[in-house]
C-alpha cells in the first residue's frame, strides 16, 4: 500500500459521510483503515488490463410502459421526523 492513512484523512472522510467520531473513535478507525487496506492491497497483483466489472448479469433493456399508479402517501408521511401541513420539515439552510 502506497501511503498510510492519516487521522486527517479519516476526519475528512467522516465529514463527507456526515459522521462525527469522537477522538478515541478516530484513532481506532484510523488504525482499522490502515490494517484492513494494508491487507486488501493484495489486489495490486490483479493485472490493470482486466476490465472493471460492476454488473453481474447481461440484460435486455429493462424498460416499463409509462403508466401511472397511485400510492397512499399516509404510510410515507408517518415516518417524517417533523411535518407541517403535509410538508416534511427539515432544518433551514439560510
Amino acid at each position: 500500500m502506497e501511503k498510510k492513512i492519516t487521522k486527517q484523512d479519516i476526519e475528512r472522510v467522516a465529514s463527507i459521510a456526515r459522521l462525527s467520531p469522537s477522538t478515541e473513535e478516530l484513532d481506532g478507525l484510523t488504525a482499522d483503515a490502515n490494517a484492513i487496506l494494508e491487507y486488501f492491497s493484495l489486489i495490486d497483483e490483479i493485472p490493470d488490463s482486466e476490465t472493471p466489472q460492476t454488473y453481474v448479469l447481461s440484460h435486455d433493456n429493462a424498460l416499463r410502459p409509462d403508466e401511472e399508479k397511485k400510492t397512499d402517501p399516509k404510510g410515507i408521511r408517518r415516518g417524517f421526523s417533523r411535518e407541517q401541513d403535509g410538508y416534511m420539515l427539515a432544518p433551514k439552510s439560510f
Binding site: L37, I43, D44, I46, D48, E50, P52, Q53
Partner: peptide, 15 residues
C-alpha cells in the same frame, strides 16, 4: 482508481 476500480477488476478476474 487504486481501490474501487481495482476491486472491480479483481471481481472480473475472480469471476
Amino acid at each position: 482508481d487504486a481501490w474501487y476500480t481495482k476491486a472491480l477488476k479483481a471481481r472480473a478476474y475472480v469471476r
